[in-house]
Design a binder for these strands. Structure first.
Lengths: 222, 222
DNA sequence: AATTAAACGGGACATTTGTCTCACTCCCAG
DNA sequence: CTGGGAGTGAGACAAATGTCCCGTTTAATT
């Protein structure tokens, strides 16, 4: 379930469940719809929030801004993904920023209501467990290969994911996702182009799936 | 709750709960005790397991071994920490290796039993939610500063944690925890010694808490 | 159409990190 | 006591990455 390596995470099952709750006059009366323009903050790191958001439409990025001015993007969240749940569970200040990349609409559920839902709908509880488990899973895998493989490799994976998902992010965001500077990002792109692995022009991987897998295998052996 | 930045994670509440279950003849009859010698594998990456383990005693390390021969340690798990829960929730192969650093004893609970416990004990369910949330929280924070700050800074934090917890790991493990080579680890240690931040001899931070905080602040401003 | 801000691409140089290597110590099994 | 293996420490060099900078392109607004 949702174990596939995604740069942009989505969760249809979760979205459907919340959608249904929202439709239900009884259960849904504390659930609000909210909209955010592209670039707007849904959640600000360090602030206190009293609701969880489930993304109904649009794409957001979830990142920590360090004091030295650098950002690290953990994930791009799309429809069906929840944010602010850590804060609901542990009652702390917000871990990260969430900002809208495209225009976004969300379901907003107050914390106490959210916790009550978990208790009254075991199915919902289990969906959340799966979401959290999947996040840990993904984060571990990603962190590990970003630390232990050259950037070139991580970048290739990133581009492959981007291509397969038909989504496109700014270079700045992609660099922040990889935890490197934009300069390094560009440099690596150039290297890959010179090796004829990428289009001269853009970001399209100039390889078949088989070839890409071979590339990656080669990296792993080296 | 357990938000403090720990290198060695422990969880008293969780341990107590499982301990009680184990004592209870009715509920505990499917819970086994298992022991592992130092260095033994509790869980092998990629394998299939059918139980979750809750550490009763001892220290383990949780790491991914990449194909290029490098390891990345996510966390050191101590008493009360659970492992194998991701696999119970998502039914996949094991994400990571767990090996015993010291002799270890664990409670072993079969997957189906574990999932049943979550349903029948809301309190247990909530404890698990908190554990998962705390892991995400910690992982995000750590990943971010390891990517965005110089190694020197991450290393200082690591040593401070080690000192405050009175735990000591091999250099190899500490390097794997930081995602760097042992060589870099040593080099950075040497630099810190030359700057009179560390003991000439060993790994003790040669600063008061206030001084250390100042150091870290200086890093953050730079 | 003109203006501005942001994104992009890359040169030059400094710094950081990895790889390879060798030497030293310690401990333990033979 | 002794040889081997693991852990440790560091020199020398190569490779990767960051910083600073500037010119170009693109997109949005006036």
């Amino acid at each position: 379930m949702s174990h596939s390596q995604d740069m942009l995470r989505t969760n249809t099952a979760f979205l459907q469940f919340v959608e249904q709750l929202f439709e239900d006059k009884q259960a849904g009366n504390t659930i609000q719809l909210k909209s955010f323009a592209a670039g707007a903050h849904l959640i600000r790191q360090g602030s206190i929030i009293s609701q969880v958001y489930i993304i109904r439409e649009g794409i957001t990025k979830c990142y920590i801004a360090e004091d030295n001015g650098k950002d690290y993007i953990f994930e791009f969240l799309g429809p069906g993904e929840i944010t602010g749940e850590l804060e609901a569970i542990n009652k702390g200040a917000c871990l990260s920023n969430i900002t809208a990349i495209t225009p976004v609409t969300v379901f907003a559920i107050p914390h106490d209501r959210f916790m009550a839902l978990l208790r009254s709908y075991p199915e919902f509880n289990e969906l959340l467990l799966k979401v959290l488990a999947a996040r840990i899973y993904q984060t571990c895998i990603r962190t590990s290969y970003q630390q232990l493989y050259p950037v070139e490799y991580a970048l290739l994976r990133l581009l492959a994911l981007e291509a397969s998902q038909q989504t496109f992010f700014s270079k700045k965001d992609m660099a922040a996702y990889l935890g490197i500077s934009v300069r390094s990002f560009n440099r690596t792109l150039k290297d890959l182009r010179e090796k004829n692995i990428l289009d001269k022009k853009g970001l399209n991987i100039d390889l078949s799936k088989e070839q890409l897998e071979q590339m990656i295998k080669r990296f792993e052996e080296a």
